[in-house]
Design a protein around this nucleic acid. Structure first.
Lengths: 129, 129
DNA sequence: GTACAATATAGAGTAAACTCTAGGTCAAGA
DNA sequence: TCTTGACCTAGAGTTTACTCTATATTGTAC
């Protein structure tokens, strides 16, 4: 199946403007119809979903672009592409650890607030007996 | 102890410009000396470290500002502040889940690349016997 | 007492990632 | 045939979070 940009925008949740911007940045370069209109394929869909996950885990557009341009060259660039993913993996592991740590801090702080709020509202205490 | 902006910048790793910008945004408003110079305290240090963790886990400046302005009002705003932290907690939990999921995908993809790279380099295979 | 380092303010500039506008083409339905 | 809606390009505008510049003042070392 082939999809015009409007349809593809709906399918991906990305705006038409964003899709054109991604093309300008070489992230995803769809085929064109004879009349010059963009024609996205199933494989473009799989690819944009991967891009969306990279984006969603904070890979900057520049890095995604780097990966996309290597991908466009073909099989000879697999070692470099593996390296980019490997680096991103390390970034993700660190991010998870950092978020987990801050989540623990946040939990203590919320508990502290709960205690203080209790102290400020004796009625609530009475109601809870 | 009191710290001038240069010292405080060193202690926090934030540039002097950033500290002034944070003040303009009401995130952290230090005392002033008689001559008008900023004077940061120990409690400013604890507070900026908390701000840094919020920032580091992607809370936007606007939201931190909201929290900071409630904090500046005092004890009467505890319920609202608790609510902001509670919301951020949920955001963090979702972020961790999302990152974890993408990490798993990434691991499969890296393994796939490893296989393909192996196939492309038979010498490596021989060397591994 | 003079140089110089640190501080002050106001406001301009920057990078990233969109987002929108203007002006134009083109195919299909009333 | 005409108009409407989807598409096209080039380029301007926006938001966030800084980052830098210009200009002025002040406190300390020689």
């Amino acid at each position: 199946m082939k999809y015009a940009i409007g349809k593809f925008s709906e399918m991906t949740g990305l705006s038409i403007h964003t899709l054109r911007y991604y093309e300008k940045e070489n992230l995803i370069v769809p085929a064109r119809e004879d009349n010059g209109r963009r024609s996205y394929s199933e494989s473009d869909l799989t690819w944009i979903q991967f891009i969306q996950r990279l984006k969603d885990t904070d890979m900057p557009i520049k890095k995604i672009k780097e990966y996309a341009e290597l991908r466009a060259i073909g099989n000879s660039t697999m070692v470099q592409r593996r390296e980019i993913l490997q680096q991103h993996k390390i970034i993700l592991e660190r991010a998870i650890a950092k978020f987990q740590e801050h989540l623990n801090n946040l939990n203590s702080k919320i508990e502290y607030y709960d205690d203080e709020i209790q102290k400020q509202n004796p009625e609530t205490q009475v109601a809870n007996i």
